[in-house]
Amino acid sequence: MNILLWHVHGSWTTAFVQGKHRYLIPVNEARDEWGRGRARTFDWPSSAEEHPLEEIRDADIAIVQRPEELDRVPPHVPVVYVEHNTPKGDVPQSRHPMADRDDLIVAHVTHFNELFWDTGHTRTTVIEHGVVEPKARWTGSLERLAIVTNEPVRRGRVTGTDLFERFTPVAPLDVFGMGVVPLRQDRVTTYDDPPQHEMHEQIALRRAYLHLCRWTSLGLSLIEAMQIGMPVLALATTEAVAAVPPDAGVLATRVDTLVEAAQWLLAEPDEAARLGARARQVALTRYGLDRFLADWDRLLEEELCASR
């Protein structure tokens, strides 16, 4: 199957292109948001090919992740719209931009997202995340906390950036991701857009993974940290509640509870190892690559058959 998709969400796309198909990735000279081409900091197989959009004429199906992509899909190519994000604005009343359409299906990445988006009579499904298992393994040798987030200054309260200072009296924070350089806080070190494998190796040295997003879809970096074997400290919001069981970390809406849990894990590395081992077991089972690709193969084949 020839699948057209834009390189939008790096970690998700990295998992998606590990399948058995041919993946056609638009590229342009600027390598901007409409033609980023192949990833440069992720490991993609040769079956993910970059081509100028105007030269892609043999797509069997298209994966669309932004409303603006619809007009760029060649005519008569069936579409699956992947919704990665939680709704914005007036959340209980949030209408999805693909609501009330009969020419596509919306595939949500979490059950939380499907619950909160109003898609009208548009068909929906949920295909939960899968990730390529990181090679790094947790040691927790550094008494520091790891955070992975993008643009923490611009996104502010969404990513829980305002909460960082609640944890720095307990342990230094190491923040990894895109656009983290402008972040300036005491006892906070930033690592801007490192190659994925290097980031995994670095966070594996930290005692625990700190997830302070107030309102976001389930971050793939959280799943990757769990598969590495890291204990998790997270706000009990959105899909994290379902992804992290009580014996794999500490979840709470009371920030002081998470601060106290950080102190506990720093003082008790054996307990951190116990939680991390369970986190790895859970994440490998629920968010394994084989399950993810099988779910997607099933949906793509159904949609392709239905379009004929």
Rank of each mutant, 00 (worst) to 15 (best):
V148N: 07
P269F: 13
R291D: 10
E143P: 10
F176K: 03
P231E: 05
T253C: 09
A234E: 00
L251N: 05
Q185T: 00
E55F: 14
D174M: 02
P246Y: 09
V153D: 09
L233I: 06
V109L: 12
V259Y: 08
Q185R: 00
P169S: 06
K20G: 13
V153P: 03
E143Q: 08
L115Q: 15
L266M: 04
G35W: 02
L115P: 08
H211C: 12
F16R: 12
A204S: 08
L266S: 03
K88L: 08
M1K: 01
L205D: 04
R154S: 14
I61E: 13
Y191E: 00
A62V: 03
N85D: 14
G19F: 04
L304F: 06
A272W: 10
T13F: 08
W117T: 03
E69I: 15
G140A: 08
D174Y: 04
Q18R: 13
Y23R: 11
I203F: 04
G179I: 00
V259R: 12
D162T: 13
R123I: 01
S141T: 12
E303I: 15
L284N: 15
I147A: 09
T189Y: 01
L218K: 06
P26D: 07
R286Q: 14
N2G: 02
A204R: 04
I223E: 10
L4R: 05
D118R: 04
G130V: 09
D60W: 04
P45C: 01
T41V: 01
A294S: 11
A171M: 01
D192W: 00
V180R: 02
L266R: 01
P231M: 06
D100A: 07
H121D: 10
C305R: 15
G288V: 09
G37R: 09
D186K: 00
F164M: 07
Q263G: 14
F112Y: 14
A279E: 09
A30G: 07
T119Y: 03
T125K: 09
W264K: 13
R214L: 11
P97V: 03
V64Y: 07
A294H: 06
A279C: 10
G177H: 00
R308Q: 13
Q65Y: 12
D247S: 09
D256R: 13
N113Y: 09
E68M: 13
L145I: 12
A171V: 01
G89L: 12
L212D: 06
R154I: 14
D297N: 15
E55Y: 13
W6S: 03
L218C: 08
Q281I: 08
N2S: 03
I228V: 07
E201P: 01
L212Q: 05
L258Q: 01
L205Y: 03
V244R: 00
R157I: 14
T14N: 07
F176E: 00
